[in-house]
């Protein structure tokens, strides 16, 4: 199941700028190669003050935000990678369901307007459910009419 994810991580400010940049690129390449995802957005914030002092004693950090598409089962690999990288001291990865929904809607709209089925399954499912609903409604109606006749 391909899903949209967003990940943010903070790199230690003790490294110099070059190695911080290379660290961000390393994560990006890791997502492409190991997680086999596709990068949609790559945003470097650079050094930024933290809202509070972290237990490691840092009061600033280097932020990077990456939005990517990946398989839901392989995202764990990225989390493990963060865990064994001491330069990254905080990270967060989560699903962007709102973007997924928007994408799905756009696909459905496209399908109905062009009357084509670009990526079969979702369209077919929607049609099927609609048909089922209609048939149910018909059954209800018939039962009602029977009841009234009796």
């Amino acid at each position: 199941m391909i899903r949209i994810y967003e990940t943010m991580f903070i790199v230690s400010p003790r490294l110099d700028e070059e190695s911080r940049n290379s660290m961000a690129e390393k994560v990006r390449d890791y997502i492409v190669e190991r997680v086999s995802g596709t990068i949609e957005k790559f945003d470097r914030w650079g050094i930024r003050k933290l809202a509070y002092r972290v237990t490691k004693g840092f009061s600033e950090g280097d932020y990077t935000v990456i939005q990517f598409k990946a398989d839901s089962e392989s995202v764990d690999i990225l989390e493990k990678f963060y865990g064994i990288t001491p330069e990254v001291f905080r990270w967060q990865t989560f699903r962007r369901e709102d973007l997924e929904k928007a994408e799905k809607k756009a696909l459905l709209k496209k399908g109905t307007s062009e009357e084509e089925l670009p990526e079969g399954q979702t369209e077919v499912k929607a049609v099927e459910s609609a048909v089922v609903e209609v048939s149910e409604a018909v059954v209800e109606k018939t039962t009602e009419t029977v009841a009234t006749e009796e």
Binding site: M8, A51, Y52, V54, G61, R90, F94
Partner: peptide, 11 residues
């Protein structure tokens, strides 16, 4: 809560 964890907002 997400912003707090990433030290964008204070606890």
């Amino acid at each position: 809560q997400r912003a707090r964890f990433m030290a964008l907002l204070p606890y």
